[in-house]
Simulated assay, not measured.
Amino acid sequence: MTTIVFLLVPGLHLLDLAGPAQVFSSAADLGHDYRLRYVADRPQVPSAQGVPVLAEVAWPELTPDDLVLVPGWRSPALAGTGRLDPASVRRLREHHDSGGTVASVCSGAYALGQAGLLDGRRCTTHHELQEELAVRYPAATVVRDVLFVLDGRVITSAGIASGIDLALHLVAMRHGPGVAARIAREMVVYARRNGDEPQSSAMLRHRAHLSDTVHRIQDEIDTRLADRLPLAELARSAGCSERTVTRLFGQATGLTPLRYQHLLRVERAEHLIGQGATVESAARAVGFEDARMLRRLRAR
Rank of each mutant, 00 (worst) to 15 (best):
residue 270 E to Q: 15
residue 171 V to W: 02
residue 254 G to A: 03
residue 219 D to S: 15
residue 25 S to F: 05
residue 185 R to T: 09
residue 258 L to M: 05
residue 240 C to R: 14
residue 105 V to C: 02
residue 269 A to F: 09
residue 248 L to H: 10
residue 10 P to K: 06
residue 118 L to Y: 06
residue 155 I to D: 01
residue 67 L to H: 09
residue 146 V to K: 09
residue 46 P to D: 10
residue 110 Y to N: 08
residue 144 R to A: 15
residue 237 S to I: 00
residue 223 T to M: 07
residue 237 S to W: 06
residue 39 V to N: 09
residue 182 R to M: 11
residue 39 V to G: 13
residue 237 S to H: 15
residue 85 D to Y: 04
residue 217 I to P: 06
residue 188 V to F: 13
residue 93 R to I: 08
residue 60 P to Q: 10
residue 167 A to G: 13
residue 229 L to W: 01
residue 243 R to G: 07
residue 35 R to E: 14
residue 115 A to M: 01
residue 34 Y to Q: 05
residue 111 A to L: 05
residue 73 W to N: 00
residue 255 L to R: 15
residue 177 P to F: 01
residue 293 M to G: 00
residue 173 M to L: 14
residue 247 R to D: 04
residue 268 R to S: 13
residue 172 A to W: 06
residue 282 A to T: 01
residue 116 G to R: 08
residue 251 Q to N: 11
residue 202 A to R: 14
residue 26 S to F: 06
residue 160 I to N: 14
residue 99 G to C: 06
residue 281 S to T: 13
residue 58 A to F: 06
residue 74 R to Q: 10
residue 250 G to W: 11
residue 237 S to T: 15
residue 15 L to A: 01
residue 205 R to T: 12
residue 4 I to Q: 14
residue 236 R to C: 02
residue 238 A to R: 12
residue 288 F to K: 06
residue 236 R to Y: 03
residue 235 A to L: 12
residue 135 V to M: 03
residue 178 G to A: 06
residue 108 G to E: 02
residue 144 R to V: 07
residue 260 Y to N: 12
residue 79 A to G: 01
residue 70 V to T: 11
residue 154 V to Y: 01
